[in-house]
Design a protein around this nucleic acid. Structure first.
Lengths: 249, 249
DNA sequence: GCGGCGCTTTGACCTACGTCAAAGCACTCC
DNA sequence: GGAGTGCTTTGACGTAGGTCAAAGCGCCGC
């Protein structure tokens, strides 16, 4: 049992590394030639945002792309009746708004700031100029979009088949990859980047229901929640949970 | 009221037209030069499938792409515990499996035949050869994937915020675009392309629950279900329904 | 015609989750 | 310090929808 945990943790760290190696705008920037890097740099406008601010709104015309330098942005979709859901989070290295820019539509989602963030803005024409001259950028964008699509379909599948509890644990598992670290006291420590309300929106539930799920998990043991800190003493909790709870029987 | 219905129906037909004008593999084929069209034709292998057959399975290596000539294919995702969900449907004109081909991964979904279908198979190397020589194909693929991503995010948002009933009505609305027609008796007639069981899988529910939703709608009036035929006498049903039923108050 | 098979509907029951409101906490501002 | 504000948790209650099993209903082959 102990050995298996060791392996699991190494596995987690490895995945973490793989994740950071993902295609980011920085990788794209570095592939530009000197001249285009200059164009890029001159076009980029840095701006600081604080929580609650809106970067762009659903339905707005797309004026350019935003690159997340630091912080955390949430992409939210509103339906006709005004209710909304958090579709995904964008963190350091990711680009926002390029989709609408590519196919010339208005923004499909609202980008809202969840934590103090620094973004670079690059206007439409500069981006298109660069994309025009660097054909390989299309390929990069294609693989980014493919990855996003796969992620979206994965969460879709989760929503179609799994209960709240399972989805929450899976969400914790993904946070453990991006915001987790080994801990001497617990086996694993996760620093949640967002508040309960937003966690709830990400899971399509209410803060109240989420709170109960958390209380339940804590009662059962293996995991402890203190504000935004999560201590996982049984890492299998995060990976083992499947839809039908067959393994708990 | 009557006038508004007329407008709505015209609107629907217009959207239907727009939909058929979407980027399909046929459009791509027609843009190839004579020589590449020949390569394309020679590489394509036609095959007939009947309901229940599996075109390719999740986890399998991707050997090439499939083009739907006629019929209907469902893309299904299984999770670790074996439960599955129908993520989307692919009909005439659409391509399957190109995603895994582009980024060189194994298939993420299982393609299952929902209605008697004719597919063309194009092997990996022929496709890559064509894509190599025709750079604009990347752009086409990019916009196809962007559209798919938007669709996926839209259903995701629906799952996060809406109740079964609303999602079902929205599904009917999309079917009305692809499989609906004006009808002299009812205002609108939809021929559902799939059976209840699959409808349920598409909505992430059980056939039993779906059956009750249908019975309920029928009791309230404005829509009638007879097997796979749906008669909509109040087209607003399909579009008006939003999450919180504010408008029914 | 009859039985047999898969799909769909119905019924009865139960649970997960939504909703609303109150109370508990943490943080800031005065 | 105390009041105010926003987030989170808890409680009480209602309901949508899951589950299982039985019954209805085409549809096919014989």
């Amino acid at each position: 049992m102990f050995v298996r945990e060791e392996i699991l943790l190494k596995e987690m760290v490895k995945r973490d590394y793989a994740r950071s190696g993902y295609l980011t705008y920085k990788a794209i920037f570095e592939r530009l030639d000197k001249n285009d890097q200059k164009i890029f740099r001159e076009a980029a406008r840095a701006k600081l945002y604080s929580p609650g601010q809106v970067v762009f709104s659903q339905g707005q015309e797309c004026l350019g792309i935003y690159l997340v330098q630091s912080g955390l942005i949430g992409l939210r979709r509103f339906d006709e009746s005004g209710t909304s859901a958090l579709l995904r989070l964008a963190q350091s290295g990711e680009a926002l708004g390029y989709r609408s820019l590519i196919n010339g539509t208005s923004h499909k989602n609202t980008a809202e700031v969840l934590a103090k963030s620094k973004l670079y803005f690059i206007n439409k024409s500069a981006f298109q100029w660069l994309a025009q001259r660097n054909h390989w950028m299309r390929d990069c964008l294609l693989s980014i979009v493919l990855r996003d699509l796969d992620q979206s379909e994965t969460t879709c599948a989760g929503l179609l088949t799994s209960k709240l509890r399972s989805r929450f644990l899976r969400l914790m598992a993904t946070f453990s990859e991006s915001h987790g670290e080994l801990d001497e006291a617990a086996a694993f420590r996760i620093e949640l980047p967002i508040q309960r309300k937003d966690l709830a929106d990400l899971l399509g539930t209410s803060p109240a229901a989420l709170s109960r799920i958390i209380a339940g998990l804590q009662r059962e043991g293996g995991i402890r929640f203190m504000g935004r800190q999560v201590f996982v003493s049984d890492p299998y909790l995060l990976t083992s949970e499947t839809t039908s709870c067959l393994d708990s029987a």
